[in-house]
């Protein structure tokens, strides 16, 4: 029984960390209509910044500043936000597809840098021994995980409440106006490029926060945690939950992560050992199927946008 509860705590920590990233993506896609295909890259920037700022000193590798956890989180968000600013300034005035291609490209490039720039990232080995703040507060993994879950839940809750207020505020209405009809938004005296840039940077900062929380939890960072499939997972969470709805974003994170881990468990029990090597592929096929089927049969997701918004913005 305790095993199940312990697993549930573990599951919730990871799902809520994902939820923070999904909320960031929701701000970009759901509310502003920005297609960010490089989520994994912004997660990676946050994760590595966290590792460098808070990790122990190492030979021949940058970092070892052993700064407090909170500083690590803040630094991660700033680093991701800065990267988003640079890429956004170049691509946000262009058509949506180009943003998709450019952000996909930056994720690939960031992963490449993570693997190869050993001085900063530790190369393929990654960076280990990143301190988890809960270790100092309690004994035993279960209590420590409970504390970390509380921390993640509070942060995710703050992000959720903050975003709800933002999208309800005048700025949120401007975002939706930009999404629905850029020309009309521009004629209202809003600079659509600037509004898009603000939403893009803020969303990417949340992805950086998510990456930092992940590293803080598992204690190490590896370039292979940020393959493009992570971007697919987070997108699927948003689409399944329902884009342009912050509750949907969190729900999607929980459900899709449950399907991912659950299917991994089932495959490990049912599939003969000879093809276990392909279990990751089976999970990926499953996620791809879920994404496509949701788009086809329930394009608004489980709980999509409250209908009023986009209808009236059009006419």
């Amino acid at each position: 029984m305790i095993g199940l509860v312990a697993y549930l705590v573990f599951f919730l920590i990871v799902a809520l960390i994902f939820a923070v990233a999904v909320l960031g993506l929701n701000l970009q896609w759901g509310f502003t209509g920005l297609f960010n295909a490089g989520v994994a890259g912004f997660l990676a920037i946050g994760a590595y910044t966290m590792a460098i700022l808070t990790g122990p000193s190492r030979e021949a590798v940058l970092g070892g500043y052993e700064l407090p956890f909170a500083v690590g989180l803040l630094g991660a968000m700033l680093a991701s936000g800065f990267a988003a600013l640079v890429i956004g300034l170049i691509t946000l005035r262009l058509r949506d597809e180009f943003l998709a291609v450019a952000t996909f490209g930056i994720a690939v490039t960031i992963q490449l840098v993570c693997v190869n720039w050993e001085y900063v990232t530790g190369g393929t080995l990654g960076l280990i021994s990143i301190p988890n703040p809960s270790r100092a507060l309690a004994d035993g993994p279960f209590a420590q995980n409970l504390i970390y879950l509380a921390l993640v839940a509070v942060l995710a809750g703050l992000v959720f409440v903050g975003l709800e207020r933002i999208v309800g505020a005048p700025w949120g209405r401007v975002l939706k106006a930009v999404r629905e009809d850029e020309t009309a938004a521009a004629s209202l005296g809003k600079n659509p490029v600037r509004v898009r840039l603000e939403a893009f940077v803020l969303g990417c900062m949340l992805m950086g926060l998510s990456g930092a929380l992940y590293v803080g939890f598992i204690g190490y960072v590896s370039p292979f945690d940020f393959l493009p499939i992570v971007t697919f997972q987070i997108w699927t969470m948003l689409i399944v939950g329902g884009s342009a709805n912050n509750r949907g974003a969190i729900l999607g994170a929980l459900i899709v992560w449950a399907v991912w881990t659950g299917s991994g468990f089932v495959i490990s029990k049912l599939v003969p050992p000879s093809v276990q090597a392909q279990s990751g592929a089976m999970q990926a096929v499953l996620i791809g199927l879920i994404l496509v089927v949701t788009l086809l049969f329930r394009p608004r997701g489980l709980i999509g946008e409250k209908i009023a918004v986009s209808r009236h913005a059009r006419d």
Binding site: F35, E97, F232, L291
Partner: peptide, 26 residues
Amino acid sequence: GHMTMVFASFGVALLLRHLLVLIFGP
């Protein structure tokens, strides 16, 4: 909209690639 097509193509890419892993092995 056409951006829905873009991320559907994401899903399709994932499916196609991993189906090959399943059929032919890695």
